[in-house]
Structure formats: C-alpha cells, structure tokens
C-alpha cells in the first residue's frame, strides 16, 4: 500500500506551530530593544533586570518550595489512588472515587479555586483551621488537583505491568504491603518520578487556583508574571521564559540520556544472560 506523505507534512507544520512561539521568546530575550519585535542587537540586559528584581526572585523561591511540597504530597496520594483503581477491583464507593479522581483533570480552574477557597473559609469559621490563607492552603489545593494527574500516570503504568511477579510474591506468602514495597514500587519507580515531576510542574505553573486560595504575603511567581503582563509586554518575562525552557530542556535531556543508558545496560545484560 502506498503511504501518503500528507500526514507527515502536517505533523511537521503542527510541530512548527507548537515550537515557533517558544523559539521566538528565547531569541528575543537576548534583544537589546524594549519593543520586542525589532531586533537591535544582542544583550543580556533583561537577565540583569530579572536578577535585580527582588520581588520576582522571592516569588520564584516561594513557588519552588510550594511545588516541592505539593509534588511530595501528590505523589503519595496519587500513587495510592492509582493502586486503588488498577489493583483493588470493585470496592465500595469505587464509582464515586473514580469520578472524584478524574474530574479535576477537566474541571475549569475557576470553579476548583472558588470551591477550595470557600472550603478553607468555612473550615476556619468552624474549627479555626487553617488559620488564614497562605502557603498551607496553596499546598493543600495544589495537592488536590495534581494528585489526579499522578494517579493517571501511575494507573496506566500499573495496568501495562505484568502482574505475575506480584502474584508469585503473594503465592510465596508475602503480605500485600511487602509485595507493594518490594515488587511493585521498584517496577513503577520511573512512573512515580514522572508523576512527581508532573505535579511539580503543574504546581509551579498554576495561576488561577493559587490566586483564589493565596493570602497576603504568599504571592507566587505566576501571580507576579500575570499581573505584570496583563498590562502589556515585558522583556524580563522573556528572560524568565528562557531560563524555564533551559531548565526543562536540560531535565528532559538528562532523563532521556539516563533512560537510553539504562536500556543499553538492560540489553547487554539480556544478551549475556541469553549466552549463558
């Protein structure tokens, strides 16, 4: 059958559509001109201005800490939720649970943000906790919406995983908890790492939910970025974007390198085992 070249051409065009804006952002972060559209010369002045912007740096540090705490919490709850969906079969209330875990994937953020804020306000009136809004409420809200994404990642890994290892361990008398920690966890470890990174990124990037549940003194990086670009273009944001892209690219490159090396080692071991 003759294969049409059309899909490949459209794929190339689509990828260009996805990447061109990011590339332009990076290129113009080195532009000397404020206008952002006319190239007048290479300069690092926007990076200087970014570094000297104390408010921005403080917000970035806060966002990183929130994202770290969120990712750790979401990975625990999300992994357990993924286990429940992939391994527990039918338990009481499964339908409700499946609904609650997948709804945040599509729920508009304004609704989630408003709902969580009203919860925190009502809880404070009722039991005095959480006292006021700030880092704690942001982390609780972020864990709630990111754990769904972690659960999906973990669940799809568990579904594709060979259950015979777990069964063998259980036949040999290992308790469920032991099976989980000794067999399941090491196998799904890469999925847990990507779930952690996903939760970290989503938390770091969230604007809408954070704006609802944050309080005075807990202004995160996206909130500052949003309020500054709302009024128009700001070249420092290009510099910030370039740093984000560089960090992400380095991380992905490193992950790809490690994965390729692991695959090579596995291949070699398998071929050696085959010879013996």
């Amino acid at each position: 059958m003759r294969k049409s070249r059309l899909p490949m051409i459209l794929l190339g065009a689509g990828l260009a559509f996805l990447y061109l804006p990011i590339v332009l952002l990076v290129v113009y972060s080195f532009n000397d001109n404020r206008s952002l559209t006319v190239w007048t010369g290479f300069s690092l002045r926007w990076y200087h201005e970014l570094i000297e912007d104390g408010q921005m740096l403080e917000a970035a540090w806060l966002s990183l800490r929130i994202a770290f705490a969120t990712a750790c919490g979401a990975v625990v709850l999300g992994t357990l939720a993924g286990m429940m969906l992939a391994r527990f079969g039918a338990f009481r209330g499964r339908a409700l649970f499946a609904g609650m875990i997948s709804a945040p994937l599509v729920m508009p953020e304004v609704i989630m943000g408003l709902a969580l804020l009203l919860l925190f306000v009502s809880l404070e009136q009722l039991i005095g906790w959480p006292a006021g809004r700030g880092v704690l409420t942001i982390v609780l809200a972020h864990i709630t919406f990111t754990m769904s994404f972690v659960a999906v990642v973990i669940q799809s890994r568990l579904v594709s995983m060979d259950v015979s290892l777990e069964e063998a361990a259980m036949d040999l008398g290992a308790r469920p908890a032991k099976v989980f920690f000794v067999i399941t966890l090491p196998i799904i470890a890469p999925a847990i790492v990507s779930g952690w990174l996903l939760a970290f990124t989503l938390s770091l990037d969230d604007l809408v939910i954070t704006s609802f549940v944050s309080g005075p003194g807990s202004t995160t990086l996206p909130m500052i970025v949003f309020s500054s670009i709302r009024l128009g273009l700001k070249p420092e944001i290009n510099a910030l974007a370039t740093i984000v892209v560089a960090v992400v690219a380095t991380g992905i490159g490193l992950a790809g390198f490690l994965e390729a090396r692991r695959a090579r080692i596995r291949e070699r071991e398998e071929s050696q085992a085959g010879r013996v």
């Binding site: 990828l15 996805l18 332009l24 113009y28 952002l36 559209t37 970025v225 949003f226 944001i237 974007a241």
Partner: peptide
C-alpha cells in the same frame, strides 16, 4: 515524536500565552 508533543506542556502555560502576545500584536511578528 510523542515526546516532542508533550515537551511544550512542561514549559509554563502562562509564558506560552505570553509568547502569542508578542506575535499577534499590531506591530508584532
């Protein structure tokens, strides 16, 4: 190829929207 599709998702959503501001404005690219 799939990685290439997912990759932009890892960079900030806000920043990607911002990129379009400089592309689409009147004297934009």
């Amino acid at each position: 190829l799939l990685m290439l599709i997912i990759l932009p998702f890892w960079t900030s959503f806000l920043i990607r929207v911002y990129a379009w501001m400089s592309i689409l404005k009147d004297e934009g690219l």
